[in-house]
Amino acid sequence: MRLTNLTIQSAEPSQRPWKLYDEGGLFLLINPGGTKSWYLKYRFLGREKKLNLGTYPSVSLKDARVERDKARLQLAEGTDPAREKRLRLAAAKLGAGNTFKIVGEEYLEKIAKEGRAAVTLRKSQWLFSLLERDLGALPIHSIQPAEVLIPLRKIEAKGNYETARRMRSLAGRIFRYAIATSRANSDPTQFLRGALITPKVEHRQAILEPRAVGALLRAIDGFKGQPLTQLALKLIPHVFVRPGELRRAEWPEFDFDRAIWTIPSTKMKMRQPHMVPLSRQSLELLREAHVLSSTQQYVFSSLYPGTRPMSENTINGALRRLGYSGEEMTAHGFRALASTLLNESGKWNPDAIERALGHQEANSVRAAYYRGQHWNERVEMAQWWSDHLDELRAS
């Protein structure tokens, strides 16, 4: 006999559980405490089993019949509905414990243990925070390409095209980590190739004309700011390292007797140690800096409290004070200046110049060969370059 809502509503609990039966194995269990639970009784592979379909009135009589019919369709297909329900619950529980936030934080912790540079970690954490706002609570295995596109579009709408591109790249690395650790089956970011606006490549600004280089060097000589800032400005044309490598230089990295500065791999963009031959002029500037900061960790330390390296904006700010705009010259531009004039001189092997710039050869065997092959040439080139800068300054 088919149940009715009136029959269900009027059913009162008793001292022992009792049942109201519907059709097709569906019944309602009335418990002594007053709760009313839906069950489906069925047979699978010769065994009698029960499937919990929820409680009344949260699950209405109509809804219970719909769930019964779905379960009986699964039975007709040879599937045990109770087992399927357990698998769905387990997947949901697993998904709740493996959200994009959880897996992403685990990935960031992993790359931190691998020794990535602090600046790289900070940038990755910042990019992750932009993704987390929209994706953090979602199970990572269920995230669709369109959902990843939402936070990317928000950043893109502000005109930050490069940031959006880097966000997509980081998200892809997190998804691939999830795949490798059996928590996702695909990387949805691969379907977003071409979906974002391609940022226009802007080359770092640099003065490249020799006469203008001489004027820049004379302007640096006349800098009236902090002495350590002036020494950093004077040294960077000679060594043409990345600005971050210069400002985070520490005294133990310098061997004055051998005239070598060894930058550890943790500070290098390519994660390989880099040796910089020091000219007489470079050594003299470092000795001047030693008088000012020998008791501190960093060669070019911040003034207050003196336990941190100078700000990443210090050199660029000094150039602005000297009258050079961001469209004319930047701290990073000294690398382009050196690369251009060294190559134009025709005196040096291009591979030696690339090694001096700290550019890493992709082939590790070839990299080791060329590192040793060009060291003597790099030592000679370092002194020639400093002498050439002096000539440009005096011209």
Score class of each variant (00 low, 15 high):
Thr4Asp: 13
Asn5Val: 07
Leu6Asp: 08
Ala11Pro: 05
Ala11Met: 12
Gln15Thr: 13
Arg16Glu: 07
Lys19His: 10
Tyr21Gly: 00
Glu23Leu: 14
Gly24Trp: 05
Leu26Pro: 02
Leu29Met: 14
Asn31Trp: 13
Pro32Glu: 03
Lys36Ser: 04
Trp38His: 07
Arg43Met: 07
Lys50His: 14
Leu51Asn: 02
Leu53Gly: 02
Gly54Cys: 07
Thr55Arg: 10
Tyr56Asn: 01
Pro57Ile: 04
Ser60Tyr: 06
Ser60Pro: 00
Asp63Met: 12
Arg65Val: 02
Lys70Ser: 10
Leu73Thr: 14
Glu77His: 14
Gly78Glu: 08
Asp80Pro: 00
Ala90Trp: 00
Leu94Gln: 06
Leu94Gly: 09
Val103Thr: 06
Val103His: 09
Gly104Gln: 06
Glu105Gln: 15
Glu106Trp: 02
Glu106Ser: 10
Lys113Glu: 09
Lys113Arg: 10
Gly115Gln: 09
Ala118Arg: 13
Thr120Arg: 10
Leu121Ile: 13
Lys123Arg: 15
Ser124Met: 12
Leu127Tyr: 02
Phe128Thr: 02
Arg133His: 14
Gly136Met: 07
Leu138Ile: 14
Ile140Glu: 00
Ile150Tyr: 09
Leu152Pro: 04
Arg153Ser: 12
Lys158Gln: 15
Arg165Gln: 14
Ser169Asn: 05
Leu170His: 05
Gly172Thr: 01
Phe175Ser: 00
Arg176Glu: 11
Ala178Gln: 06
Ile179Tyr: 06
Ala180Arg: 12
Ala184Trp: 03
Ser186Phe: 14
Gln190Ala: 13
Leu192Asn: 04
Gly194Ile: 08
Leu196Ser: 12
Ile197Thr: 14
Ile197Pro: 09
Lys200Asp: 06
Gln205Leu: 00
Val213Gly: 03
Gly214Asn: 11
Ile220Pro: 01
Asp221Lys: 11
Lys224Ser: 15
Leu233Pro: 01
Leu235Lys: 04
Leu235Asn: 04
Ile236Asn: 03
Pro237Glu: 02
Val241Gly: 03
Glu245Ala: 03
Glu250Pro: 05
Phe254Lys: 09
Arg258Tyr: 00
Arg258Val: 00
Ser265Arg: 15
Met268Phe: 14
Pro273Gly: 07
Pro273Ser: 11
Leu278Gln: 01
Gln281His: 13
Ser282Lys: 03
Leu285Ile: 15
Leu285Val: 10
Leu286Asp: 01
Leu286Gly: 02
Arg287Gly: 01
Glu288Met: 12
Ala289Ser: 08
Ser293Met: 05
Ser293His: 08
Gln296Met: 06
Leu303Asn: 07
Tyr304Phe: 10
Thr307Lys: 08
Ser311Glu: 08
Ser311Gly: 11
Ile315Glu: 04
Leu319Tyr: 05
Leu322Gly: 01
Tyr324Ser: 04
Ser325Tyr: 04
Glu328Arg: 13
Met329Gln: 15
Thr330Glu: 05
Thr330Tyr: 07
Ala336Lys: 14
Glu344Met: 11
Lys347Phe: 06
Asn349Lys: 06
Ala356Val: 05
Ala356Phe: 02
Ala356Met: 15
His359Thr: 03
Arg366Pro: 00
Tyr370Gln: 13
Trp375Lys: 05
Asn376Pro: 01
Trp384Asp: 01
Ser386Cys: 11
Asp387Leu: 08
Glu391Ala: 09
